[in-house]
Design a protein around this nucleic acid. Structure first.
Lengths: 161, 161
DNA sequence: TCGTCGTTGTTGAGCACTCAAGCACTCGGC
DNA sequence: GCCGAGTGCTTGAGTGCTCAACAACGACGA
């Protein structure tokens, strides 16, 4: 197998540009959210998920595990994050009535408010960092490229035999 | 101005895919390097830069500031990183002969060896996570997209008047 | 020579994450 | 009932980052 093959020139260029891009974008968004909404980017994502769950019919809560799987966070990471966010009053934990191991999480009114406050500035930052720089065609391309990469991480079913 | 404009459907899709992609790729590379080479991804990048400097004619060293600017790291981040890497024996600090504020950094033989050990596995991980999933055309597209985003972060000269 | 300002680098507190370990519970077979 | 494996969540140590404050030096004009 050709596992030791190096990156060719085009790949090198693309890779370095990719690394720099993700670093710059990540830092910009994290800094903006930390400054204007006192939360790291990861917490914003958690609030978004919980807010979406709230709008669904039913409980409006999510099990820790389901939330972690949806965000692809480790259980431990989510536990630490929720503990901190509970301290900020943005979320609450509840015991699960059907499985005593599980914990349900729900966004609070305060959390909804914090998200509503943070969203406009965050979206503006995303726009100015990313979408203002790209053509509509490039947005489509970016979506396809990322989808392909994500697909590579999905567990592949090993064929029988 | 239309600063409050939301993300449209295509942008939403692309953005969520982008976030998931960077998270998955970052974690995969960090984990692989941590496991196989006992270094975080950021330290790998520092070693690469210092190794490139070593191949150049001249001192083969870089000032802390120049290294930080090249990698777009904060001074503080680099100081902490170099301190830790010096503890691992991968780099050394030297006083700058022409400016007593400055510190020069050089990669050691041990650092060169650590990088040489780490490189094949790392490149394989990059390949399997990213380039194996993309067509040649997509690699070109990705390079152009990232270059455009990076350009957006470059300081723009405000025109006189 | 002096004061001032910009540059260079370090420090330490605070924080979010990882990893390994552990506790409490559920489920299924006996 | 009871044991074992699997699941859900938490804990705490270790680590790398940010941010603000600071110390030391260089450059330059008065």
């Amino acid at each position: 197998m050709a596992r030791r093959r190096w990156l060719d020139k085009d790949e090198q260029t693309a890779w370095r540009a990719y690394l720099l891009t993700t670093q710059l974008v990540d830092e910009a968004l994290d800094r903006q959210l930390q400054r204007d909404a006192q939360m790291p980017h990861a917490y914003y994502g958690i609030l978004v998920r919980l807010d979406e769950a709230r709008r669904q019919p039913g409980e409006g809560t999510l099990r820790m595990t389901d939330l972690a799987r949806g965000l692809r966070y480790s259980q431990s990471r989510l536990t630490h994050a929720i503990t901190s966010m509970e301290g900020s009053g943005w979320v609450v934990r509840r015991d699960c009535p059907t499985d005593r191991r599980s914990q349900l999480v729900a966004i609070t009114e305060q959390g909804v408010a914090a998200l509503a406050d943070a969203a406009p500035g965050h979206v503006a930052a995303v726009r100015s960092a990313v979408f203002d720089q790209l053509t509509a065609e490039q947005v489509t391309q970016l979506g396809a490229i990322c989808a392909a990469i994500v697909r590579g991480f999905e567990p592949t079913v090993t064929p029988p035999g």
